[in-house]
Design a protein around this nucleic acid. Structure first.
Length: 882
RNA sequence: GGGCGGAUAGCUCAGGGGGAGAGCAUCGGCCUUACAAGCCGGGGGUCAGAGGUUCAAAUCCUCUUCCGCCCA
């Protein structure tokens, strides 16, 4: 099919699937382990198996793919490991909902049967998002695809757990944790989302034991008073200093509790005296530890009051609140209630209000792991791009709390721990099954029921996917990875933990750079969500506009450190660019008739005509810019640089100019060559952004150096082809042409091509230039002829345009509208005067002349002279008209 | 309460010390043999406000107002 023309319009559907399949079959996505090549590796942020490709995935993976394709074309051996995350709670929820339709709960099925169902679900639907990534064009190394629950990764998880246990960095104990009464599991601090909601602040009276009155405490959660074991005040608070040590009778329960002093109490809150409920509040838990207070758990795992709550046992926590308030009121112990904005924690998976409670859980001591992880960033071994995320990372790492890793769900990595029912021994083992207690020899063992937090396995992702703990070629070749591409919302959940685990277990950072991209929002700046109904579905966009249009849009909008506000209209807009690429390519192909490979092989750059030299010079600058921007992760600017080169320079000027060259025997050959080369280079520059259309067009090109563009060499900057002088000349010609077009447009003469133009200049070089480029100018400005004169006196019926150098006269004879002409020139004069006064102000400033750099002063002086001359001429012509 | 980011054309945003930019929208003219998903031309902005640094500020600094996000 070489050399044939392209069809009239680009049809993405017809080609996308085809090329993806071919690339994959040819093995282009796989690393070669060629030792001569530099290495580039990434691991995908694994999407949830339950996931469906949303616009955030689309952005995230498009950026990674741009990098992968760019690096591959630039000669790197690229490994991009894809995979999915088992997403404990989310996946379990999905399957629970599914069996609920059959009227079943997971408890009806039992652990084993339920897990079978989850696996079955995973086999059936788990590959959905992978297929969708392929539609996006993601050039992942598929033979390395992993799943966080597959065998190899499970081995890594067990290994890590056992080692951390042996090092004393994992412990088990009764601590206060966030509990989701709906999911029936503990959550890590990070998994709780806070929301400010209107609530009340109740002021309760707690009587002194000696009957000498009462103290008033303020609380947002009166029902927890049943579990109070103290009242605390700030030791500096003069109002209460004398009361410290006194005892109170806890109302409704009649428990005697002390008044204690603790610095953490904020004297500004409420009355300055707070009730202490160690079993249901994080701060109170800390206070209780410091003061050896008892823990009374009054709310259970289902969010209901426990036996400890006496008369309230069995009530739901919110009902209990009402009842407690009522009862206190009845006893005259409610001082008052006020409206209050309270901050409530919700489960990030199901949005249920979190209940802090005491529970036996497994924890990782994070401080020893966080220290080297912080240092790695401080010393610059890992760099965040953009840099400002570094502070956020430090902030979190320096205030890190121990990580609760146990979850009371079934879907996940089961904690590799057995308890001996005979001697109480805790056995931690990498083995699948432990049958005998190593301490007492008993065979009465019970396995831990809990599973690990999903993020525990994702924290190992950069090395577990490479086969660790096995020491192999993959790890040796590709660890640490080059860059991690992700969004800021999981810096704590994932990025920080990968750094901790990577350094601890590999002795090496997991990645050199972390590129943090924006979050995609809708056109109003709101988070996209199904409930808001503002979701832009990438698959629907692909269907409508093609993958390349979607990708280019995402990249073009991916400015650093910002939200991306996406609307369908923008995708549609960029689809026009895709179409432009297609049509420009058609034009080039249609004009390669009789293209002669050998005679056109070596064309001397120096001998090219002006416009050809110019487009090559501009192309070089574009190559430089695109590479620089890609290297700096400024994807939007890289994309826009090619966009503007291709459309504004190549299509709008060069293709048009080439229409004249192609008719000229002397220039035809070289022009064909230049058209082909510039197109080819542009396609290569564009391939990482818009892989499908560029591959499709590539197939029609002559003289292609590789079978597929995906493995072509990425263009390199050639300084010797940048030609400043040519650029200057073309700039003048463009000014010349635009001015004529402008006149024609203003006088509604655009359909007339029989205009004659006079160009007057005393610069012989300029006259020569116009003479030489006459044909192209005539064609581009759509005029009949240009007369070049060293001297000319304006005649009646002439319109004059004063350029930066030289003047244009168009004789309109009777068509001239003097009023209009005066208006036009006056407007021009005003513009020039405004600029002149700005420059004058500078040039009159002595300090400017002394302190500003010479080039700047020089530039201003030149501009001044030029503008002054133009103003003089315009004034002159205006006088003639009036 | 602490931190970060933002405020530039009607809309969405780029720019980041020396002549205010892009895309979309808008207005006028063109079916010019690659493209009407296009071409050509035009209009439109005290760069949030105040102060400061500087020869020079949309750009750097301080404060104010408003908006967004994160953490407590």
């Amino acid at each position: 099919m070489e050399g044939e023309f392209l069809e009239k319009s680009y049809n993405p559907k017809k080609v996308e699937e085809k090329w993806y399949k071919i690339w994959e079959e040819k093995g282009y996505f796989e690393p070669t382990y060629d030792e001569r090549k530099p290495k580039f590796s990434m691991v995908i942020p694994p999407p949830n198996v339950t996931g469906v490709l949303h616009i955030g995935h689309a952005l995230n993976n498009t950026i990674q793919d741009v990098l992968a394709r760019y690096k591959r074309m630039d000669g790197y051996d690229v490994l991009w490991i894809p995979g999915t995350d088992h997403a404990g709670i989310a996946t379990q929820n999905v399957v629970e909902r599914e069996i609920a339709k059959e009227g079943l709960t997971r408890h009806d099925l039992g652990r084993e049967k339920f897990l079978e169902r989850v696996w079955k679900w995973k086999e059936q639907y788990g590959n959905r998002i992978i297929e969708q990534l392929k539609k996006l064009g993601a050039s992942c190394s598929w033979s390395y695809q992993r799943f966080t629950m597959d065998e190899g990764l499970s081995r890594a998880v067990k290994e890590v757990f056992v080692r951390l246990w042996e090092e004393g960095l994992i412990y088990r104990g009764d601590y206060i944790i966030n509990w989701c009464p709906r999911c029936q599991t503990a959550l890590a601090d990070l998994e709780v989302e806070f929301e400010t909601v209107p609530g009340k602040l109740w002021y309760l009276k707690y009587p002194f034991e000696d009957g000498s009155g009462y103290i008033i405490v303020a609380t947002t959660r009166p029902e927890t008073m049943l579990g109070d074991t103290a009242v605390a005040v700030n030791p500096e608070d003069d109002r209460y200093k004398h009361l410290i040590g006194k005892n109170l009778i806890l109302p409704l329960v009649n428990r005697v509790i002390p008044i204690i002093a603790d610095k953490i109490v904020d004297p500004e809150f409420g009355t300055g005296a707070v009730k202490v409920t160690p079993a249901h509040d994080f701060t109170d838990f800390e206070i209780a530890k410091r003061h050896n207070l008892p823990f009374v758990k009054v709310i259970n795992e289902f969010g209901r009051m426990t036996e400890e709550a006496g008369a309230y046992a069995g009530l739901d926590r919110f009902e209990a609140r009402k009842k407690v308030v009522e009862d206190l009121k009845a006893q005259g112990l409610l001082e008052k209630e006020e409206d209050y904005q309270l901050v409530l924690g919700h489960c990030y998976r199901c949005n249920t209000v979190i209940e802090p409670l005491i529970s036996k859980q497994w924890f990782v001591s994070t401080k020893p792991l966080a220290q080297p992880a912080t240092a790695a960033v401080e010393y610059g071994f890992i760099k965040f791009v953009p840099e400002n995320w570094t502070n956020l990372y430090y902030d979190w790492m320096r205030n890190i709390r121990d990580w609760c890793i146990s979850r009371q769900i079934w879907w996940g990595h089961r904690i590799p721990v057995w308890y001996c029912n005979s001697c109480g021994e805790i056995i931690v083992s990498k083995e699948d099954e432990v049958k005998k207690c190593p301490n007492c020899g008993s065979i009465d063992l019970k396995r831990e029921e809990d599973v690990l937090d999903t993020w525990f396995s994702s924290a190992l992702w950069p090395f577990s996917t490479m086969g660790w703990p096995e020491k192999n070629k993959i790890l040796f070749t590709f660890y640490p990875t080059s860059v991690l591409v992700t969004s800021f919302d999981i810096i704590f959940f994932w990025v920080a933990r990968m750094i901790m685990m990577g350094i601890h277990f590999m002795g090496q950072i997991p990645f050199e750079k972390v590129y943090i991209h924006a979050l995609v929002r809708d056109e109003k700046g709101q988070k996209m969500s199904k409930s808001r109904g503002n979701v832009i579905d990438p698959l629907e966009m692909i269907e409508k506009y093609g993958t390349d249009a979607l990708r280019f849009t995402l990249v073009a909008l991916a400015a650093q450190g910002r939200d991306i506000k996406l609307s369908e209209a923008r995708i549609e807009g960029f689809k026009h660019f895709i179409n432009k690429v297609w049509n420009a390519s058609r034009f080039v192909l249609m004009n390669l008739e009789n293209y002669n490979y050998s005679s056109q092989k070596n064309i001397d750059f120096e001998k090219l005509p002006l416009w050809s030299k110019w487009i090559i010079s501009e192309l070089q600058k574009t190559i430089k810019e695109v590479r620089e921007k890609l290297d700096e992760f400024e994807f939007d600017q890289a994309a826009m640089a090619v966009y503007h080169f291709f459309w504004d320079k190549f299509c709008d000027w060069y293709l048009e100019a080439s229409k004249i060259y192609l008719k000229d025997k002397n220039y035809k050959d070289s022009t064909q060559k230049v058209l082909l080369e510039v197109l080819k280079t542009s396609l290569k520059l564009l391939h990482p952004f818009i892989p499908f259309i560029t591959e499709e067009i590539w197939q029609y090109l002559l003289e292609k150096e590789t079978e597929h563009i995906i493995i072509a060499k990425y263009p390199e900057f050639d300084d010797s082809k940048v030609d400043k002088n040519t650029e200057k000349l073309i700039q003048f010609l463009q000014e010349f042409i635009v001015n004529i077009r402008n006149i024609k447009s203003e006088y509604n003469l655009t359909s007339k091509t029989n205009l004659n133009i006079i160009f007057k200049s005393d610069d012989i070089n300029l006259l020569n230039l116009i003479e030489k480029e006459k044909e192209i100018i005539k064609f581009l400005a759509k005029i009949e002829n240009i007369v070049l004169l060293k001297d000319y006196k304006k005649e009646k019926g002439d319109i004059s345009v004063v350029l930066s150098e030289g003047e244009i006269f168009v004789n309109l004879k009777d068509l001239i509208d003097v009023e209009k002409e005066i208006r036009r020139l006056t407007k021009e004069r005003e513009k020039i005067e405004k600029k002149l006064s700005q420059i004058e102000r500078k040039l009159q400033n002595k300090e400017f002349l002394e302190k500003a750099p010479k080039e700047v002063v020089e530039k201003e002086k030149n501009a001044y002279n030029e503008l002054k001359e133009r103003l003089f001429k315009i004034n002159h012509y205006l006088k003639e008209l009036i």
